[in-house]
Nucleic acid binder design. Structure first.
Lengths: 366, 366
DNA sequence: TAATTTTTGATTTACGTACATCAAATTTTC
DNA sequence: GAAAATTTGATGTACGTAAATCAAAAATTA
């Protein structure tokens, strides 16, 4: 049988009350006694029964999720996943609130992080914009002993506890490797469509992509990066202009969002050789384009996994216990039209379709 | 606040004892009363606090894992993952025992399943061999109200509760799609190395591979399937013979284990055009070959995920509660040398290296 | 040494559920 | 309508931990 607090008391030769004082770091225990108890815990291999402890404490974990607002399929899917987690709150003892801030907006994000700190939750998950001010705001949360997990896009140099997202450098490298092999003998330059260089995930993907293209496929020149602000309309204009300027384009790597615009531009393209297209994030639009042969491969991160992983890690950090590392590694999914998962419908789709059009630059769209 | 049993009692106008009788389906409740209570449960939206219930019951979940024995890196890695789960048993309230049976052996597997049934555990996970006798044995377990999860290889037509493994038809299709694209303009037939057509996973992969090769890349003929029994030595002989007989081979799809033998044959191959190789399961051997450029892509299933998922599902089935479907879908990982995960060392490696050589056909090796 | 402070022990209640016991109320059977 | 059987209620204990109270013991200070 697993040892209990009573066994600690017996082993240490102290009372239950003293064991409790040590376990829950309450005052009024002499150092010698505390050490006696800690040694007993070590000796008999006691591990606190978290379920029983949570029951006794009527513990709930108040978490805050900070996500970009705007018309971005992936981000709205992520929000839907957080809402699904909210639906499981009674069972999981969480109390999750969602805060949305304009995409790529440092000041708004800092304000949201500081507001979160004022609410003193049990943990914060945030889709980070890479900036010194954001790093400072995250570090203020950590200084207030509030666990922080970055979601989707990391914040290198900050004191965040964990990153729940894919290895974006590897993602970029993989995209390049697939691009180079899929192009085979064909020649021609490759265009890159990004959202913004303000977010770490996009920068990392570009870095990985550039590295492998230069190393392994130097015959294909890289055209200057198109920054589409994750806005479909802008993306469509930029890609269309690139096709017009360089009809010999052999491939396109879309490492951000706004794929609706990219797909529109591909459909409008009349002439020229076939283009190899690799994009990120499986949405209704990229899925359809993959099936139609407009897109050759989609690299995907599972937002549901990321959200559930973030919650597990935040809980563990709040309780001060270890996590199963391998379980929390977010995988990069590679989808060809041959291994598309069955469409789960509402699960990854938008929770609500927004009809009206969005101002450009306000969202990480699609 | 979340409703409790007391709230049910109040809402239904009955005593706590009666609510308990209904909740735990004990006898001695009139149908009218039972319905009154069930309606109250529905009305106030009660969900049992599983943590508290488990605490009260001092619940442990005795599970039995039935795995193939023999010198097969993937299977030994799987076993290591089960052992890791055993290490978490005190926390997860499980009591897991491992049973190994010779690979591809129907009688031994049936005996193990029947022995498991006699032990009346809370659930059984099994790497299935596809056979009517095995189906019958699994159905006997289900008839005894014991939840069954198939692991890695499914058992279509049985009453198993769940399959914790990848979609192997999609895996085969993906392999073909990658193979066809990687080959580009090159011509020549493609060889297929399987383990045994007795297991569903191998048959499914072959089916998917054949379908896409015939549909999309009919220029590449498929050579007769080599059945290597997942044995490295046999695989090496078969592949070597195939190279000798057909020097113009353009690609090899290894859909089973025994990749050590395949790699040896590839290294020995002197002449001929370069061969595009796609294999299954990331082990120390396939990882090294991928890095060396001997293998072009590895399709992988994460044994750790499969084991943890199997345990979660078995628990849920034992408790009669729902699972998060998306969380339990096992993903097909596609690894190129560019997105190899950091080597976790002991985590996916063999728990112990076996030096001695194994009789052929006794294991699903490598 | 006495007075004071600090530390420790003993005990109780609570969390939400399971399970057992015994008495009381209700229904069924003859 | 009485006896028997069944159903329901009331109550207590348990699971492992948290948290509180108050008394007793030990240590510290004057």
């Amino acid at each position: 049988m697993r040892p209990t607090v009573h066994d600690i008391a017996a082993a240490a030769g102290v009372s239950l009350a003293t064991v409790d004082r040590v376990l829950n770091q309450r005052a009024g225990v002499r150092t010698v006694t505390r050490e006696k108890v800690e040694q007993a815990i070590e000796r008999i291999g006691y591990v606190r029964d978290v379920a029983a402890a949570n029951l006794a404490k009527s513990r709930v974990y108040p978490f805050i999720f900070i996500l970009p607002s705007g018309d971005n399929s992936f981000m709205r899917g992520l929000e839907a996943q957080v809402r699904a987690a909210i639906g499981r709150s009674p069972v999981e003892r969480t109390a999750i609130s969602i805060v949305t801030v304009p995409a790529f907006n440092v000041e708004a994000l800092v304000a949201a992080l500081d507001a979160a700190r004022a609410a003193s939750p049990a943990g914060v998950a945030v889709v980070a914009v890479d900036s010194p001010d954001v790093i400072a705001a995250v570090d203020r949360l950590r200084a207030a002993r509030i666990p922080v997990v970055t979601l989707v896009s990391d914040l290198a140099g900050s004191l965040r506890d964990h990153f729940a997202g894919v290895d974006n450098i590897a993602a970029g490298r993989t995209a390049a490797s697939l691009m180079g092999r899929f192009l085979g003998g064909r020649s021609g330059p490759v265009a890159v469509l990004a959202g913004s260089m303000l977010v770490r995930d996009h920068r990392d993907r570009l870095e990985g992509f550039r590295a492998v293209m230069n190393e392994s496929f130097p015959a294909h020149a890289l055209l200057p990066v198109l920054e589409g602000q994750d806005d479909p309309a802008l993306a469509e204009r930029l890609v269309g202009a690139a096709f017009a300027a360089s009809p010999e384009i052999a491939g396109v790597y879309s490492l951000g969002a706004g794929n609706r615009g990219l797909i529109a531009a591909l459909k409008r393209r009349q002439s020229g050789q076939p283009v190899c297209v690799i994009a990120h994030e499986l949405t209704q639009h990229t899925r359809a384009a993959l099936n139609d042969g407009l897109i050759d491969a989609v690299l995907n991160q599972d937002g549901g996994h990321e959200v559930r992983s973030a919650i597990r890690v935040l809980k563990a950090k709040a309780d001060g216990v270890a996590v199963i590392g391998a379980q929390e590694r977010i995988r990069l999914d590679i989808f060809l039209k041959d291994n598309l998962p069955f469409d789960e419908g509402s699960e990854t789709d938008l929770p609500f379709e927004q009809a009206g059009n969005q101002e450009p630059g306000q969202g990480r769209a699609d």
